[in-house]
């Protein structure tokens, strides 16, 4: 894409790229720095979620029976559908990055739109799941007023359930936001094989959201 590359050369004799920030030596250095920063953020995300997983494991060790019975009140099929939706969105996200690598603008836009649609489907399924829990009084902490008997402390299970899936859902919403930003820039024609690091970094974030769900799904829905 010639519009991204100006004709004049900079002091190092390199063609100056439109998105080349002056404090980086080369586009490659700029990209690898940005990616390293993204990975530091993802490492932080892993640690952030590990606190919630720890709470899950401690309460599960304390109330194994509660966990066995409470998980039966979650809809395995809806959870399974959401898993497939997120896995497919991860595929389209990876393909979006590939399209950007090949300077294929049309493929990039189509794959980004598919990813965004999947994110919305995920949230819609989650909405139906949440409303079913609200209806049956399966709520966190003091708000819990389930009618069916669950041994032990079901309110703790549902506290963990709503906190973990809720924070994961917030990550999905944030993902939709950054995906729209990338989509706008892709339509504008910002990305090609010489510059696609924003697509790649948003992709890394989106895959992490998928990774968290890969562990949440069996832990919350498939206890038995």
């Amino acid at each position: 894409m010639s519009s991204a590359t100006h004709a004049h050369d900079d002091a190092n004799g390199q063609a100056h790229h439109k998105f080349h920030q002056h404090h980086f030596l080369t586009m490659a250095q700029q990209a690898s720095s940005a990616k390293f920063g993204m990975w530091l953020f993802l490492g932080q995300e892993v640690l952030f979620f590990s606190g919630l997983f720890m709470a899950y494991f401690v309460f599960r060790a304390l109330y194994p029976d509660t966990w066995l019975h409470s998980a039966e009140h979650l809809n395995k099929t809806m959870g399974g559908i959401n898993t497939v939706v997120l896995l497919y969105s991860s595929l389209t996200m990876a393909l979006a990055v590939r399209s950007a690598q090949l300077s294929d603008k049309k493929g990039l836009v189509i794959n980004l739109i598919q990813t965004i649609v999947c994110a919305f489907i995920f949230l819609v399924v989650k909405y139906f799941e949440y409303s079913a829990k609200f209806e049956h009084g399966l709520l966190p902490g003091a708000a819990y007023h389930g009618h069916e008997f669950i041994p032990g402390r079901p309110e703790l299970f549902f506290t963990v359930y709503f906190t973990m899936t809720g924070l994961h859902g917030i990550h999905v919403v944030a993902g939709i936001g950054v995906l729209f930003w990338i989509l706008k820039r892709a339509i504008r024609g910002d990305f090609d094989s010489t510059y696609y690091i924003p697509v790649e970094n948003v992709g890394l974030y989106w895959h992490l959201v998928d990774l968290v769900w890969i562990f949440l799904f069996p832990l919350l829905y498939l206890v038995r």
Binding site: K35, W39, A94, G203
Partner: peptide, 22 residues
């Protein structure tokens, strides 16, 4: 997902180290 979709297998080793440490 990490190896292929996130491209870690072919990525700079530094990024794998960040993930491994966390």
């Amino acid at each position: 997902v990490g190896g292929v979709f996130m491209h870690l297998i072919w990525d700079e080793k530094l990024n794998i180290i960040v993930l491994a440490v966390s």
